[in-house]
Amino acid sequence: MSDSTQQAADILMAVRQGGPKVAGLGAAAPQTEAGAFAVQAEVLKRLGARIGGWKCAAPPGKPTSAAMLDAGFIRPGPLRWPVPAGGQIGIETEIAFRLGRGFPKRDAPYTLAEIQDGIESAFPAIEMVSSRYLDTSKVTMNEAMADSIAHAGLVLGAAVPGWRGMDLKNLTVKQTCGGTVQVEKVGGNPSGDPFTPLLWLANYLPSVGLALEAGQVVTTGSCTGLLYVDGHQRVTGGFAGFGEAVVELD
């Protein structure tokens, strides 16, 4: 492991352990996506965690991105989630999939049909977002990926029966906080279709020595955008005919 990977992990862990947020990783910032994943993996190791899944995005004409998810913070809702006193936490409503099989490295790319066949179940989800940086707009994409793209946790609703017969990219999404509707619209996935980033991720990860594995959960991008909210409120995020996830913010 490189010195810069260790240094980047030192910086991010200090924030996770209660230190002040940082402007960036400075000279320790990874220069490649593989380097960003190395930092993610080192942070998970130091947390005593394991990879339970991934977040990913593959928006047309824009950079792709992905981050490892701490298995201990992929949780079924409804549940309570702590928010720092006087602080806020970001929330995003998404569609997530649990994989029934892995997608190891092979010569031929995986097809959409193979990816869809490999999905065990689908869920509405709320991603909890909290960056370790002072201003995420002022860090590079590799720095953002090193910090797991500000991921803090994933709350899952119930698995959805009959999801294979649904038009997932055109569901009506609705997110509320404290009883107030924040977002209600049709569609909204940044990649257009939630299967698009999953297909990209399955074919991309082997190029950096990683792979999707059976049992992992993949969340496919916010359909509501990122909204920061105060604690002591009830948050719901879901889709018409697809159920919802629920979080009580402490």
Rank of each mutant, 00 (worst) to 15 (best):
M1V: 10
M1T: 08
S2K: 14
S2T: 15
D3T: 13
S4M: 09
Q6N: 12
Q6P: 00
Q6K: 14
Q7A: 15
Q7C: 09
Q7Y: 00
Q7V: 12
A9C: 01
D10A: 07
I11H: 10
I11C: 11
L12F: 01
L12V: 00
M13Q: 11
A14K: 12
A14D: 12
V15P: 10
V15S: 03
V15K: 06
R16E: 15
R16I: 11
Q17F: 04
Q17R: 15
G18Y: 09
G18M: 03
G18I: 02
G19E: 07
P20L: 07
P20V: 06
A23N: 12
G24L: 03
G24H: 02
G24T: 08
L25H: 03
G26R: 12
G26C: 09
G26L: 10
G26D: 10
A28M: 07
A28W: 00
A29N: 03
A29Q: 01
P30D: 06
P30I: 05
P30A: 04
Q31I: 08
Q31L: 13
Q31D: 14
T32P: 01
T32I: 06
E33P: 08
A34H: 05
G35T: 10
G35D: 04
A36K: 02
A36G: 06
A36L: 02
A36T: 05
F37W: 11
F37G: 02
F37H: 11
F37A: 13
A38R: 00
V39A: 07
V39S: 06
V39R: 04
Q40S: 05
Q40T: 04
E42I: 00
V43I: 13
V43G: 08
V43D: 04
K45W: 02
R46C: 00
R46K: 07
L47D: 14
L47P: 02
L47Q: 15
L47V: 01
G48P: 04
G48L: 03
A49H: 13
A49M: 11
A49E: 14
R50N: 12
I51T: 14
I51V: 15
I51G: 01
G52L: 02
G52I: 05
G52Y: 05
W54H: 09
W54A: 09
K55G: 13
C56W: 02
C56Q: 11
A57L: 11
A57I: 09
A57N: 10
A58C: 11
P59Q: 08
P59M: 07
P59K: 09
P60G: 06
G61C: 11
G61V: 11
K62Q: 15
P63C: 06
P63V: 03
P63Q: 06
P63H: 07
P63D: 02
T64A: 12
T64L: 07
S65L: 12
S65Y: 12
S65P: 00
A66Q: 07
A66S: 13
A66D: 01
A66K: 08
A66L: 05
A67T: 00
M68Q: 15
M68L: 11
L69Q: 13
L69Y: 06
L69R: 12
L69N: 08
D70N: 14
D70A: 12
D70Y: 08
A71P: 09
G72K: 14
G72C: 08
F73K: 15
F73S: 14
